[in-house]
Structure formats: C-alpha cells, structure tokens
C-alpha cells in the first residue's frame, strides 16, 4: 500500500482527499485510477496538473513500480517563464 501525501495546493482542489492515506497500486497509473474512483475528476486533474514524487524523488515515469512502503507526494506543477 503506497502512502499518499497531498500538498495544500492539491487539497484546495480536492478538500475531501485529506484523509486519502494508503492506496493499493502497483504504479502511478493505477494509483491515479484509484484516486479518481474515490474523488471524482481527480484523474483528469492529475493528468493535467499533477507532479509526483516517489520516496522523495521526482517521478516522470508513471509506470515506475511502487513498493509496499512507497511514499507518493502529489504536488501541482509549477510553471516557469
């Protein structure tokens, strides 16, 4: 079960997701599907606006395998200029 941490900016979009806790998922694709099932529209939102870090490291590849103790941090993408 991956532990999911949401930053305040994400919680502003999905306030009900504060208690997300652990999610059973083999990778980030599945994790996002699970989150979308719990919180409507979170899947498309993640597609467009989320960035992920797994165990403190940015994760551009959503197929990256999640371990049973993985910590997944979801943040909003930051635009540069």
């Amino acid at each position: 079960m991956a532990r999911v941490l949401l930053t305040p900016a994400v919680l502003a979009e999905f306030p009900g997701a504060a208690e997300t806790g652990a999610v059973e998922a083999v990778n980030l694709f599945q994790l996002v599907r699970e989150l979308d099932a719990r919180f409507p529209c979170m899947g498309p939102w993640c597609d467009a606006r989320a960035a992920f870090a797994v165990d403190g490291v940015s994760a551009p590849d959503w197929s990256q395998r999640l371990g049973p103790d993985s910590e997944v941090l979801i943040i909003t993408r930051i635009a540069g200029g």
Binding site: P44, W45, D47, A48, R49, T76, R77, I78, A79, G80
Partner: peptide, 9 residues
C-alpha cells in the same frame, strides 16, 4: 477544461 500546458496547466 484544464489541460496540460507545458510545465503547468
């Protein structure tokens, strides 16, 4: 529709 735009959306 929120869409990905480069780094952000």
């Amino acid at each position: 529709l929120t869409m990905a735009l480069g780094e952000s959306s």
